[in-house]
């Protein structure tokens, strides 16, 4: 059966994620309603503004269905998506799905002038599972994972902080693999479905 990969399309770079999923060899479909959420095997929470997504999740009554989805199915969050997955969010403090035991500080590198591209050497486990060498990471007004609980596996670090983490079904990146040609992080997620 073909995998049905959903991309939450309330706001943000969901189109870039769809193209990345397609490059990784699966079909993507946009998710904007609870019914559409029911019809996918896994979900990507894209980059964008977490406050905008939270507002829409609440107003469209998608917050609880999404949390419930996360108890059964894999979710992969990038940047704003990682913020939504976190147990704790600071700068400023805000509500989240609390599906991963991480504490995230928003806009922790500063404003847009501090956005940048870096090349990092991922952890052995990442390389074992995906192959290849260093990873190009695009940070856009990115958050920093200040704490990762014991159940959280760190798959890549940058300047000492975790930037790609996994816990059970879920995966979170503070950078944007969807904005590069390298689709290893997406393939890693697809392998979890």
């Amino acid at each position: 059966m073909t995998l049905r990969v959903g991309v939450l399309a309330l706001q943000g770079d969901f189109d870039a994620h769809c193209r990345a999923v397609e490059r990784a060899g699966a079909a993507a479909r946009l998710v904007r309603t609870a019914a559409e959420l029911d019809a996918v095997d896994g979900l990507i929470l894209p980059g964008g503004e977490s406050t905008t997504m939270l507002t829409l999740l609440r107003e469209e009554r998608l917050f609880e269905p999404l949390r419930e989805f996360g108890r059964r199915r894999p979710i992969f969050g990038t940047c704003a998506g990682a913020i939504l997955l976190a147990r704790e969010v600071s700068h400023p403090q805000q509500e989240s799905l609390e599906l991963m035991d991480i504490a995230v500080e928003r806009n922790a590198y500063g404003r847009q002038l501090n956005s940048h591209v870096a090349r990092i050497q991922p952890e052995e486990e990442f390389l074992r599972r995906t192959g290849g060498g260093e990873l190009e990471t695009v940070f856009i007004r990115a958050p920093v994972i200040r704490r990762a609980g014991e159940a959280v596996k760190v798959l890549a670090r940058y300047r000492g902080d975790p930037v790609l983490v996994e816990q059970g079904l879920h995966l979170a990146a503070t950078f944007h693999p969807e904005l590069t040609e390298d689709n290893r992080v997406h393939r890693l997620f697809l392998a979890k479905l």
Partner: peptide, 12 residues
């Protein structure tokens, strides 16, 4: 990187 932020604003 400049276009990256514009990508994040899409659908907004």
């Amino acid at each position: 990187v400049k276009v990256g932020l514009a990508e994040m604003l899409k659908g907004g």
